[in-house]
Design a binder for these strands. Structure first.
Lengths: 224, 224
DNA sequence: TCAAAAGTGTTAAGTTTACACCCATGA
DNA sequence: TCATGGGTGTAAACTTAACACTTTTGA
């Protein structure tokens, strides 16, 4: 096997950009590191790829280690492979973003990792090239969200149109017109009224809606 | 350094999806492998990442090894890290696409690698997960091309509007209306007439145009 | 009774699409 | 002289954007 053994080997890591929707803002789950390297600084949740595990599986495992969540929507952002990106050793890292519903994660587990939520436009500086990873993840996530119905991963199964609108505004970074927005939703078959009413956000109460995956698969139509 | 040494190391490769525009079709530069593994089959051009080289640099080096070209537009497609993706050894590969002007490459070098051009919709089956790499590269390239003026990397510096239109048609996979297309070009400040006439494709001759990078940077406007 | 969020249509502006003929030239 | 690719404008359909008031109800 000299064809292979002539070539060097590298440490391979994964890092997770975990997005949630909190207080009408896209937020990020970060670690305040209580371990080396870069103890005391802020970073993404990461981990090393194992021998008998795909890189995608490593990302899923690392996400589960922090949040307790499985079956989460994740997309690869890309490989980060500059020579000096970690100071002590050469490590190539593959970044992934995840979209989670902030109501669902395991709070104890998150606290035990010294992790915390922060709005993306208030995020602290991160170690290594993690800032670049977050920037790229944001661009990629926004691009995907404008073409595919991935934003629903950030919401509970049932949501009001006000919440959906403020999510769109947070993703696209611009205010949207309420009437135009609701007109568009009304023409989107895969978003359907469930009948129930949410009274937690207003006195009057707001109709609850949900995303119907099957309708989306049939029509292929989604654009908000 | 036991923090690092406790973790496994992996062979890291890069693979290049090299796009060119030939006979009005998006084409791909492939290898007919005269070496193991998978000798006799078709594959992308690839190579292993070296110790003191970034992953991006490895991709550039591999592209240069095959084509002789430097300073080529490349984008990372992503990391491919399934456990069994190469049969004999675990190798994680990072794929990149490159856009080259097909008039420019070193023909001798390409022939010495047993490489050949093929239109994307006539490509043969490729080894390992290279088919998946090509599909993802195409999606990513098309997405980028619809937002940024990257298509000009596939053309000579000066080109006729007919060539540019047939390139757009090849990228978007649909026919375009000639008058609407030219109207749009006329409103795109970063595409400017050079004055010269190309007589190689028609008796009458066609005006030559070029992409002006500086105008694009000022206006930020590009949409074809 | 009033504050706070929910809900509801119309019109003007702009963009996109469809479409057919004349021009210049070399063979 | 004719075959080949180069070049040109208009009108209808559709999409997007702007805009303000009424409803419900808990505090």
């Amino acid at each position: 096997m000299s064809y292979y053994s002539a070539h060097p080997r590298f440490h391979l890591a994964v890092d997770c950009i975990i997005f949630g929707f909190r207080d009408d803002k896209i937020s990020l789950l970060l670690l305040k590191r209580d371990f080396e390297p870069a103890k005391g600084e802020c970073s993404l949740m990461g981990g090393f790829v194992r021998e008998n595990e795909s890189v995608d599986d490593a990302a899923r495992r690392v996400l589960t280690e922090l949040t307790g969540l499985t079956d989460i929507y994740m997309e690869q952002v890309g490989a980060f492979g500059k020579v000096g990106r970690e100071p002590d050793e050469r490590v190539v890292s593959v970044a992934y973003y995840a979209l989670i519903n902030i109501d669902d994660y395991d709070h104890e587990l998150v606290e035990s990792h010294n992790a915390f939520w922060v709005a993306i436009d208030e995020r602290p500086d991160l170690i290594f090239d993690h800032d670049e990873m977050v920037s790229k993840a944001l661009v990629k996530m926004r691009g995907m969200a404008s073409e595919y119905p991935i934003m629903f991963h950030l919401l509970p199964k049932e949501f009001t149109l006000s919440k959906l609108q403020s999510l769109c505004e947070a993703i696209y970074g611009m205010p949207l017109d309420k009437r135009n927005f609701r007109k568009q939703v009304a023409h989107t078959a895969c978003i359907e009224k469930v009948g129930a009413i949410d009274k937690s956000e207003s006195k009057r109460g707001a109709a609850l809606y949900r995303f119907n995956e099957n309708v989306f698969r049939k029509t292929g139509i989604f654009k908000l």
